[in-house]
Computed example of a mutant assay.
Amino acid sequence: MKVGFMGGTFDPVHYGHLLAAETAREACGLDEVWFVPSGHPPLKDHGPVADGEARLEMVYRAIDFQPYFRAMDLELEREGTSYTIDTIRALTELYPGRTFSIIIGADRVNDLPQWHDIDALARMASFIGVTRAGETLDPDRLPASIADKLTVVEMPRIDISSTAIRERAAAGRSIRFLLPEKVHSFIRRNGLYDAR
């Protein structure tokens, strides 16, 4: 079984995440995409705004219509920094017979050489770099051990970010139609991202 691994804070999850996952699934023939909210991401300057339980619940609500998507709490259950290599090792042990492809946005592809234990990670998994129309991605700038494991796919342009959603919510502006309605209602009901 070919599984796409989609990590991130999902703070909150939005249509851009879902479109990236579906684009990668279709283009690379993935059987499923697993969304794994991070606990303590190493390359973020600050932690998530919403707690792990709320972020996981938003992912469940966002993907409940899609039979090829799953949500997992593996990184939220683990103490310390959420390194992708540790998660892929754990998933490989828990689910033998699966091959994993790590789905990342074009903006993160250039960061790959900085990822913790990247050489081991490149031996255990492949990478799917999702670009938007007009973005350029130059795999030749990556070490061969990473570039050889990278597939680049293009998805329709959608200009949505979790940061922008949080900022709009904090300013009292509408975030409806930027994310699934079940996620929107959860955010409203729980007062997430309101100005503090």
Rank of each mutant, 00 (worst) to 15 (best):
34 W>M: 07
149 K>S: 10
126 S>Q: 11
85 I>V: 15
49 V>R: 10
35 F>N: 00
43 L>W: 15
103 I>F: 04
144 A>R: 14
39 G>R: 10
105 G>F: 14
103 I>E: 03
91 L>E: 01
48 P>L: 00
41 P>M: 13
41 P>V: 15
137 L>D: 10
39 G>K: 02
72 M>W: 05
104 I>Q: 00
105 G>H: 09
144 A>E: 11
104 I>K: 00
51 D>Q: 01
125 A>G: 05
68 Y>L: 00
76 L>V: 00
72 M>Y: 11
113 P>W: 06
31 D>R: 01
94 L>S: 07
79 E>C: 03
46 H>P: 02
83 Y>F: 12
75 E>R: 00
148 D>W: 02
108 R>G: 06
56 L>H: 08
100 F>V: 10
60 Y>C: 09
146 I>M: 02
32 E>K: 11
75 E>K: 00
100 F>Y: 15
127 F>S: 08
119 D>S: 13
82 S>T: 13
54 A>F: 01
110 N>F: 08
136 T>G: 15
126 S>I: 05
43 L>Y: 15
145 S>C: 12
124 M>N: 05
114 Q>K: 14
106 A>W: 06
53 E>R: 14
78 R>H: 06
92 T>C: 03
105 G>A: 11
89 R>K: 13
35 F>Q: 08
95 Y>L: 11
138 D>M: 09
60 Y>T: 01
108 R>V: 05
76 L>P: 01
103 I>L: 05
80 G>P: 10
40 H>F: 09
103 I>A: 01
146 I>C: 04
89 R>A: 09
71 A>L: 11
63 I>K: 01
150 L>H: 02
143 P>A: 12
43 L>E: 13
80 G>T: 14
121 L>I: 08
62 A>C: 03
150 L>I: 14
115 W>L: 10
106 A>T: 12
111 D>L: 13
28 C>K: 05
87 T>M: 06
50 A>P: 00
140 D>H: 13
144 A>Q: 12
35 F>K: 02
78 R>C: 07
85 I>K: 09
146 I>H: 02
67 P>H: 03
118 I>K: 01
33 V>W: 08
128 I>K: 04
37 P>A: 08
54 A>Y: 01
108 R>W: 11
74 L>H: 04
42 P>I: 11
38 S>H: 06
72 M>L: 12
45 D>Q: 11
29 G>A: 15
131 T>D: 05
52 G>R: 05
124 M>V: 03
86 D>V: 05
101 S>E: 11
44 K>S: 08
121 L>N: 07
61 R>G: 03
149 K>Q: 13
107 D>Q: 04
39 G>Q: 05
144 A>P: 00
68 Y>P: 00
26 E>I: 15
60 Y>E: 11
142 L>E: 14
43 L>Q: 15
124 M>G: 06
94 L>K: 11
131 T>G: 04
32 E>M: 02
93 E>Y: 14
118 I>R: 06
29 G>H: 07
79 E>A: 10
105 G>Q: 09
81 T>E: 07
73 D>S: 15
114 Q>W: 04
86 D>T: 13
88 I>W: 12
130 V>A: 08
51 D>G: 00
140 D>C: 07
56 L>V: 09
108 R>I: 12
37 P>K: 07
152 V>F: 14
118 I>A: 12
87 T>E: 09
79 E>H: 09
71 A>I: 13
